[in-house]
Write a protein that binds this DNA or RNA. Sequence first.
DNA 1: GGCACTCGATACAGTAACGTATCCGATACA
DNA 2: TGTATCGGATACGTTACTGTATCGAGTGCC
Lengths: 207, 207
Amino acid sequence: MTAEPVPSRRRANTRARLLEAAAEVFADKGLGAATVDDLAGAAGFTRGAFYSNFSTKEDLFFALFEALSARMVDSVRETVESAPDYDLGLIGAVLERLRPQARAWYIVQTEYLLLAMRNPEVGRQFAAHRNKFEGEFADVVMAALTRLGRRPTLPVEQLTEALASLYMKNLAVEALAGDAPRRDGEPGRFIADTLPAVLLGLSEPLA
Amino acid sequence: MTAEPVPSRRRANTRARLLEAAAEVFADKGLGAATVDDLAGAAGFTRGAFYSNFSTKEDLFFALFEALSARMVDSVRETVESAPDYDLGLIGAVLERLRPQARAWYIVQTEYLLLAMRNPEVGRQFAAHRNKFEGEFADVVMAALTRLGRRPTLPVEQLTEALASLYMKNLAVEALAGDAPRRDGEPGRFIADTLPAVLLGLSEPLA
DNA sequence: GGCACTCGATACAGTAACGTATCCGATACA
DNA sequence: TGTATCGGATACGTTACTGTATCGAGTGCC
């Protein structure tokens, strides 16, 4: 391992601002269309600052993905841990908590997936990431189900995958309906109905 | 309506070759990274031919999406109509039939979705497309379910959405596992197990 | 089989983004 | 407070892609 060059406070701050701005830029323009100038400019810098911190825009993109993933997992964990009790309402609480970050996360995650489908190297990274992510998530699902007095009728990993893919789909549907009028905070019909239905339909009472 | 300028045989052929080549190019490079030169070159033409037939690469992209969608729907319909009888095995037959076109279709569809999330105008087109597509598909699901002697325990549209999103997810998983060794023609564990389970879990016997 | 015209090839200029090399101000440290 | 180093800004040359304008061969038609 090469010794890390000790990042200064100033440098860390610049990186953070670049990362934060990148979420918006990538969400709006996409990895392909976003230019280094867009990314630096959105953070209030010039390209000089960018190249001083990242070697390519893909470099920044991957760093952003890491940061967003970490924030998503933390949000879920926090919500679940601070829940007063476990019932189907927990699903709504989690969705509500994820909502503000959902659009950017969905887009970045999806573009990463496309990249992974095109490049075996990226594909391996992506798969590793997702296994870890879904493993943690499967534990949460299993715990919640147990507290509900139920058990899955198929391997919990598959149930989790099903829930996750439904949630992903819902993110897309919600983002698409962005212009359609809807009451603030309402989690959306599809997910509110379907997620619990699937959760119950693919599980059975314990006893 | 302006009168269509009567496309010559030569012209139609050029368009078709451009469309066919575009599927591969867009799947490999993506809409953003693909250049007009890539697209024309892959079809054996120069940019002159491209600009004579399409005004922008987005133009070609949308045309490709239409073509691929039509082929997907046709494939499903043909498979279902020529099925000896309706049982859970039909799912496998449909998947098998879609398989060769699946990767390109998934990528193009996903990039279209991203475009739709970023541009309200495109978003409306996309939504219209999907409503039509999923409407047709819901009919097929309902018919199949009826012949199986079952009925959905939630609105058939939601069940269809669930199945579709699982299938989409599976497409991604399969494409990612492209390098992993697997027997030819095997439809993949996830989808083979999960799809029927969901179909049964979200429906009940008729009587 | 000759003629007109369509359509794809070629050539050109303009533009935008890239990556680097250099400069200068800010910051840390003594 | 002085000085050395770090980090972001600026300027530059290069490359690659775009879109149009023009040319010439292949095609359909009589």
